[in-house]
Amino acid sequence: VSVELPAPSSWKKLFYPNKVGSVKKTEVVFVAPTGEEISNRKQLEQYLKSHPGNPAIAEFDWTTSG
């Protein structure tokens, strides 16, 4: 189950709350306009370098507050 949070234009930000008793931590995933899922800052940096014209990296908020 995921919750969609505010994201930069043409992107989606999905929040996957951890299940009770789960060892997996809460996860935030950005979905690029191409449909590619980005789950960490390093991936995001690589994606933005190879896909010019996207929002600046500073516009991506990895917190769950939206």
Rank of each mutant, 00 (worst) to 15 (best):
V1A: 11
V1Y: 10
S2E: 08
S2A: 15
S2F: 15
S2Y: 15
V3Q: 07
V3C: 14
E4F: 09
E4L: 10
E4Q: 09
E4Y: 07
L5C: 10
L5H: 06
L5V: 05
L5P: 05
P6I: 07
P6H: 08
A7K: 04
A7M: 04
A7G: 08
P8R: 03
P8M: 05
P8H: 05
P8G: 06
P8T: 04
S9I: 12
S9Q: 14
S9P: 15
S9R: 14
S10W: 10
S10D: 15
S10L: 13
S10T: 09
S10N: 15
S10H: 14
W11Y: 01
W11R: 04
W11A: 03
W11Q: 04
K13Q: 02
K13R: 04
K13N: 02
L14W: 08
L14P: 01
F15R: 03
F15G: 04
Y16L: 07
P17H: 10
P17F: 14
P17L: 13
P17I: 15
N18T: 10
N18K: 09
K19D: 09
K19R: 14
K19L: 14
K19E: 10
K19S: 13
V20Q: 11
V20E: 11
G21H: 09
G21D: 11
G21R: 06
G21M: 06
G21Y: 02
G21Q: 07
G21T: 08
S22W: 08
S22F: 09
S22C: 11
V23I: 12
V23M: 14
K24Y: 09
K25P: 09
K25T: 12
K25E: 13
K25C: 13
T26P: 15
T26G: 15
E27L: 15
V28A: 04
V28P: 02
V28R: 01
V29K: 07
V29N: 03
V29F: 07
V29E: 02
V29Q: 04
F30A: 01
F30H: 01
F30S: 00
F30Q: 00
V31Y: 07
V31M: 07
V31E: 03
V31F: 07
P33I: 03
P33V: 02
P33W: 01
P33S: 03
G35E: 01
G35Y: 02
E36F: 04
I38D: 00
I38L: 08
S39K: 14
S39D: 09
S39L: 12
N40H: 06
N40C: 07
R41V: 13
R41Y: 12
R41L: 14
R41Q: 13
R41H: 14
K42C: 14
Q43F: 05
Q43N: 06
L44G: 00
L44I: 01
L44P: 00
E45S: 09
E45V: 10
Q46F: 10
Q46D: 14
Q46I: 11
Y47E: 00
L48W: 01
K49H: 10
K49G: 09
K49A: 13
S50P: 00
S50E: 13
P52V: 05
G53F: 05
G53C: 06
N54Q: 10
N54M: 09
N54R: 03
N54S: 13
P55Q: 04
P55R: 03
A56F: 06
A56C: 08
I57M: 11
A58V: 10
A58H: 15
A58Q: 13
E59W: 05
E59G: 03
E59L: 08
E59T: 06
E59N: 06
F60Q: 01
F60S: 01
D61C: 06
D61A: 05
D61R: 04
D61E: 07
D61F: 04
W62P: 01
W62N: 01
W62H: 01
W62G: 01
W62D: 01
T63N: 11
T63Q: 08
T63A: 12
T64G: 09
T64D: 08
S65Y: 10
S65R: 09
S65I: 10
S65D: 13
G66N: 12
G66E: 12
G66V: 12
